[in-house]
């Protein structure tokens, strides 16, 4: 377990830099996480991120791209536009959640 300093405070992260503590995240931090990986957050990004946060709170798991479409209602194609190349990992990183564990 490591910590890193973000938004002026210590944050717990795993070896790759994904947050490990759900409650250490807030929206100001998300903006900084997004900035670090070159994603500029628009209202559409925020909708996806808020869905991921709420879904994790409910299920205890990070939603896969499939679930973000099927349950969240955000088409996969749009996810690729918002979080280019690796949407599953990028959106979970910004949402302060672990990488999705599901295969699909």
């Amino acid at each position: 377990m490591s910590t890193t300093t973000l938004a002026g405070r210590e944050i717990h992260v795993d070896a790759e830099g994904f947050l490990t503590e759900y409650d250490e995240w807030d929206e100001a931090l998300a903006a900084q996480l997004a900035d670090q990986i070159g994603v500029e957050l628009t209202p559409e990004h925020w909708d996806v991120i808020r869905f991921l946060r709420a879904d994790f709170a409910e299920t205890g798991q990070t939603a896969t791209t499939r679930r973000v479409q099927a349950v969240g209602g955000f088409p996969v194609k749009q996810q690729f536009v918002l979080f280019p190349k690796k949407p599953g990992k990028k959106m979970s990183y910004i949402a302060g959640l672990p990488k999705p564990a599901g295969c699909v």
């Binding site: 377990m1 490591s2 910590t3 890193t4 300093t5 973000l6 210590e10 717990h12 992260v13 070896a15 790759e16 830099g17 994904f18 670090q36 990986i37 070159g38 280019p84 190349k85 690796k86 990992k89 990028k90 990183y93």
Partner: peptide
């Protein structure tokens, strides 16, 4: 045991 590191950013291979 936690250790503090300055900044860890995942490498998404964009570069």
């Amino acid at each position: 045991m936690t250790e503090t590191q300055p900044r860890i950013v995942p490498d998404f291979g964009d570069d």
